[in-house]
Design a protein around this nucleic acid. Sequence first.
RNA 1: GGAGAGGUGGCAGAGUGGUUGAAUGUACCUGACUCGAAAUCAGGCGUAGGCGCAAGUCUAUCGAGGGUUCGAAUCCCUCCCUCUCCGCCA
Length: 427
Amino acid sequence: MLDMQLVRNDLDTVAQRLATRGFMLDTQALAQLEAERKRLQTHTQQLQAQRNSSAKTIGAAKARGEDVAPLLAEVAELGSSLTAAESALATLQEKLQALLWQMPNLPHASVPVGASEEDNIEVSRVGTPRAMDFIVRDHVDVGQPLGLDFEAAAKLSGARFTVLRGQLARLHRALAQFMLDTHTLQHGYTELYVPYLVNDASLYGTGQLPKFEEDQFYVQRAGMERLCLIPTAEVPVTNLVRDEIVLREHLPLKFVAHTPCFRSEAGAYGRDVRGMIRQHQFDKVELVQMVEPQDSYDALEQLTGHAEAILQALELPYRKMALCTRDMGFSSAKTYDLEVWLPAQQAYREISSCSNFEAFQARRMQARFRNAQGKTELLHTLNGSGLAVGRTLVAVLENYQQADGSVTIPDVLRPYMTGLTQITTSN
RNA sequence: GGAGAGGUGGCAGAGUGGUUGAAUGUACCUGACUCGAAAUCAGGCGUAGGCGCAAGUCUAUCGAGGGUUCGAAUCCCUCCCUCUCCGCCA
């Protein structure tokens, strides 16, 4: 959520910056609503002040044992006009609030302005795709003989689910373990285990609501608040600081969590239908940081580097993209995507997204810290995938495939696989 | 599933219709005492918003929403959440 103060005072600049990401702010309508709000609020507060002072007068008179009838007559009219003013103000403020909830974050000055992913800028490219002197198969063809089973998953749940068997399931687990160990032991993150079902307030906090309700999976409970399957660990982890005032000496907070993620992928029909690139359920190791405002862009570089370290350790070729204004997520001020090389597609595909949200989420969550002056100030929040486990498995299958149909296990994963060096149909 | 208790300021904890934005304790800040610290004493200390150059002033806020009332933390209704005990269960 943007700072209403800023939106008010700098309406045209805000509108221009939002326009670069494709959000058209009706400044005239907003200015008009704002003016009306101001008028109504002043009016309402005057009436409230009047009510309060007469109530006190009446109370005092009663205490002295005087007749209060004439005083009561004086305020007879006040009630109804106050009720009317209050409800008019409430309606208007709801309208303004709804508008504010739906406005995306302002892009940082360093974000390239662009219309689509075509305008994303390649920041760096690491690793060289391996030369393969045989017909390169995609992860589906490589994986199916080794235990990747979409038919079984379809029977159980439908499209966009996966069953993994045997060493493939184990490799999947090894990947997650390796990522967690790296981030906790080498990058200083605290591991968390968190709920996979969260309430609406949490989804508002990180920005999934109110705009992206149709992307979520909801669980209804009779007589209880509905809960939502988390689309990413970002939601439960970031919301840990919701309504909290963090001590400055505890900053930065750095958390890592391995969770499944659930996405309905509404509107993605026909995209990546083959394989396990785009699933309703996938695992992800998520990095989250809460930092002081002046540190957040350094933190973004570091956090992105932590995700890159996994790709480097796995010796997977990738590139780092600075997303352009139009391609960034709703809540983000700046995002780097890490894209891994998929030889079958002869393309780099997203495997991690690292973002600085500045105070956008913190304002929604009222997540604050006490600054050096002892005043409460909004935190800056960041997160990034480190990495998407399912897609990492895809990348390993494709990049480590051999002519004979086996898959070599990357060196760093072997300790997690009791020394196994390759996956074949026979193991 | 059954029975009960409860949601008040950073924390603890009073308050059951009238100058209560809220006692008290604690934490924190400032000052006094001290060579310094501890202890003690005095003062300050929530959040959000409106108006104002400012000093200031006004409004809202005691889980959420609605109701009663001139006036609600306090009474009534609905909902949400937490805790305890019993049962069942991974």
